[in-house]
């Protein structure tokens, strides 16, 4: 059943996302072409400023659309989830013979796929555009990336450890996106509790979550500093270990992030499904 829910959620949202990808693609091509053509125009005509303005505008639109695609895809998925759960579409969604858990998981996996594709398309367009139109900037960015990578992994060869670290890093990143999606879905599900103000309730839930996280982070940092001040040796030992094994830094951090995100995603899915089971009031 999970496969089916996943499949039909992908089909259902395909038209919308394809359209968005198309728009970004078109803006990308237009901006690329205009900017390359602009480079060929002699200096004195360029000074008129009109061509520069047009190029600048198309460039702005392109980068902006990439940013929007990357940043707003998970929010869009949340809106689509709301539609399928709380509007007329819910008459189909909630009468299918699947558990609420399967429903939420299937839809969040589908959301993950689209968010990931959005990320790839957004970044690819921006990267290719920068590489072609501003090759110097691109090269220096690439150098910075290489340096950061070295600092994080302390190795320039393809050791198995490096490969594993990179894989775990990517998984951790995917898990982060997955958690983000599940967090939004959880807030939407939570919003069902209030009959007349479902959307407002969802937003409130998100705000509450953010505040709680802030509070907990503060608490953890405080506790951490307290532990260190009580026993500074622990920190020194830890630092010594890290200095001895610099290649493990990225691996350990990625692993922690991966596990936390998977754990919290599972929690969010559990809360979503329980809320939908007990508190659904479809109008």
């Amino acid at each position: 059943m999970l496969k089916k829910v996943f499949k039909y959620d992908i089909y259902g949202n395909m038209k919308l996302f394809s359209m968005l990808y198309l728009i970004v693609g078109v803006l990308f091509i237009i901006s690329l072409v205009l900017n390359q053509v602009n480079k060929l125009i002699p200096e004195d005509i360029q000074a008129i400023g009109l061509t520069n303005f047009v190029c600048g505008l198309s460039m702005f639109l392109m980068y902006f659309s990439c940013m929007l695609l990357v940043g707003a895809s998970s929010l869009l998925c949340a809106v689509l989830f709301y539609k399928s759960v709380a509007t007329n579409e819910g008459y189909l969604t909630h009468t299918l013979p699947v558990t609420k858990k399967t429903l939420v998981l299937g839809k969040s996996l589908a959301g993950l796929v689209y968010c990931f594709i959005s990320l790839i398309i957004g970044f690819a367009c921006a990267a290719i555009h920068t590489a072609v139109v501003f090759p110097d900037t691109f090269n220096s960015l690439l150098r910075n990336l290489k340096d950061s990578f070295y600092i994080a992994t302390h190795s320039d060869e393809f050791t198995p450890l490096l490969v594993i670290s990179v894989i775990i890093f990517i998984l951790a990143f995917v898990a982060q996106v997955f958690f983000n999606i599940n967090l939004y879905y959880c807030c939407v599900s939570f919003g069902q509790i209030n009959n007349s103000h479902k959307i407002i309730m969802s937003i409130v839930a998100y705000i509450v979550y953010t505040m709680v996280i802030q509070f907990l982070s503060g608490l953890i940092s405080f506790g951490f500093s307290l532990a260190i001040s009580i026993n500074p040796e622990r920190l020194q030992n830890f630092q010594a270990y890290m200095d001895a094994h610099p290649d493990l830094i990225m691996l350990i951090i990625s692993l922690v992030v991966l596990l936390f995100n998977i754990g919290f995603s599972a929690l969010a899915i559990h809360i979503s499904s329980k809320t939908l089971e007990k508190k659904l009031n479809l109008q």
């Binding site: 819910g90 008459y91 909630h94 009468t95 007990k278 508190k279 659904l280 009031n281 479809l282």
Partner: peptide, 9 residues
């Protein structure tokens, strides 16, 4: 009817 179809609790 909605209760029978568990659209409302």
């Amino acid at each position: 009817i909605k209760i029978i179809n568990s659209l409302i609790s």
